[in-house]
Design a protein around this nucleic acid. Sequence first.
DNA 1: GTATTTGGTTTATAATATAAACTAGTTTAT
DNA 2: ATAAACTAGTTTATATTATAAACCAAATAC
Lengths: 95, 95
Amino acid sequence: MKGFSPLDPLLHSQLRLAVMSLLISLESAEFTFIKEKTGATAGNLSVQIDKLSTAGYIEVIKSFKGKKPLTTCKVTKAGITAFETYVQALKNYIE
Amino acid sequence: MKGFSPLDPLLHSQLRLAVMSLLISLESAEFTFIKEKTGATAGNLSVQIDKLSTAGYIEVIKSFKGKKPLTTCKVTKAGITAFETYVQALKNYIE
DNA sequence: GTATTTGGTTTATAATATAAACTAGTTTAT
DNA sequence: ATAAACTAGTTTATATTATAAACCAAATAC
């Protein structure tokens, strides 16, 4: 019978999962790009990126593109591992 | 690029997803059985079953086993469809 | 009889997600 | 040069969700 191992609550969120999914396939991405691709509001995205960053799942790099502030996100080793673990756990639920 | 179609919030919950997963493979199951398999507390399970039932994803049948109350859950057609849709959407995030 | 267990439900609290309001600075138009 | 509108976010407040604690009624065990 199935195991139903716990699902990392940090990843079990539509927006955070989408962000991680994007970052894993792209290595790194800009805030505005992620915002577009996910359709999230800036506020929500800012909060969720902060959570992923605090958890050490992503790295947030603040710089400037010309004179405008630029926030770039990059997935970390820990983030990739967590994502893979989450996906494996999920499979117990959906297969 | 990936689509990130929305994930049915009713199914995007660890416990409710586990309940649906169980019911889909077993057709129907008793409250106590689901409680054991999922490791949920009775209170939490009661609430989540109620939500799935209100949504029409499961049918809840109340009867008696001898003299004790017996709650049996059965997945509905709508529930199966919703689950399948959820799984397809999820694949955009995790593949 | 009374204490405990079974099979739950209801209600309260904690956690999360989301949106609205705000900050700081830039570009554009007048 | 200054006001209006835009970019790129952050902070804070609110709504929603998840979870747990407290409760209830009946049955069984002592």
